[in-house]
């Protein structure tokens, strides 16, 4: 373990391996994310992108390897809720919002506040709650829809609501899985803008297939292949590397 890198990093993965019934989803994945950094992860299907997210958020326990957050928090020892409380937010590939809650309540539930049953049952909301909700609704352009049921939103709006919920959590690190899947071009560009804005004061990891979108983000790219890092660097440099071309086109 590289002590210097570990302590200076926000997220530190080293030699992470996960297998399901003999299928190796991750084999020795190592990745380091600096505080405030935005990173795009690309890779063909089955490269291990979603499994990596699962490991970071505590859904899947790695068979081997270390996962540290903020230099000192061992994520492999914590469950989802604890990891979320540490400040890691996750957006799923398929938009998952609470369909029978209003847009406003969705944000309210995600808003950073005590999470215990006792607090939600007997506690009083913080005085700035309404203000924070308003701000997030404005950022995600959902102010006009605040009283609507989340189920009634369009696909793009649901994606944004979910990003809004991530913002409400005010996490140190955002994990965003294919945020523009199924979006129109205009929505895609707007989403890219939204993410860049968020990246100003958060660290972000974006998993995406859409190369135009990744180009639009203009950040460092990590290419995953068969559960390990294949290449890392700016998009143009990475996409010129022969083994990347082989993985993407050579099949």
């Amino acid at each position: 373990m590289d002590e210097a890198t570990l302590t200076s990093s926000l997220l530190y993965l080293d030699g992470v391996a996960v297998s399901f019934d003999g299928y190796k989803a991750l084999r020795g994945l190592s990745l380091t994310l600096a505080p405030g950094e935005m990173r795009a992860i690309i890779g063909p299907n089955g490269a291990g992108k979603t499994t990596m997210m699962d490991v970071i958020t505590g859904k899947t326990r790695p068979d081997e390897g270390v996962v540290f957050f903020g230099g000192n928090q061992d994520l492999t020892q914590l469950d989802e809720a604890a990891i979320a409380e540490l400040g890691i937010g996750r957006k799923f590939q398929k938009p998952t919002v609470f369909e029978s809650h209003t847009v406003e309540d969705n944000i309210l539930l995600a808003l950073k506040a005590p999470r215990s049953a006792r607090a939600t049952l007997f506690g009083k909301p913080a005085p700035d709650t309404a203000e924070r909700i308003d701000r997030i609704l404005a950022t995600t352009k959902l102010t006009d829809h605040r009283a609507r049921m989340a189920a009634d939103l369009s696909h793009g709006q649901k994606q944004w609501l979910e990003i809004g919920m991530l913002l409400a959590q005010d996490p140190k690190l955002l994990l965003v899985d294919e945020p523009v899947a199924g979006m129109t071009d205009a929505e895609t560009m707007q989403t890219a803008e939204l993410l860049r804005e968020i990246a100003r004061d958060h660290s972000v990891v974006v998993v995406e297939h859409d190369m135009d979108f990744v180009r639009e983000l203009g950040v460092k790219v990590t290419v995953l292949h068969e559960g390990a890092v294949l290449a890392e660097g700016p998009l143009d440099q990475v996409s010129a590397e022969p083994q990347v071309i082989e993985v993407y086109l050579g099949r």
């Binding site: 937010g89 609470f98 959590q169």
Partner: peptide, 15 residues
């Protein structure tokens, strides 16, 4: 929220 999307609820930090 748990009824509608249990794992989502976990990921925003509720036990």
């Amino acid at each position: 929220a748990i009824r509608d999307a249990e794992s989502r609820t976990r990921f925003i930090g509720y036990r």
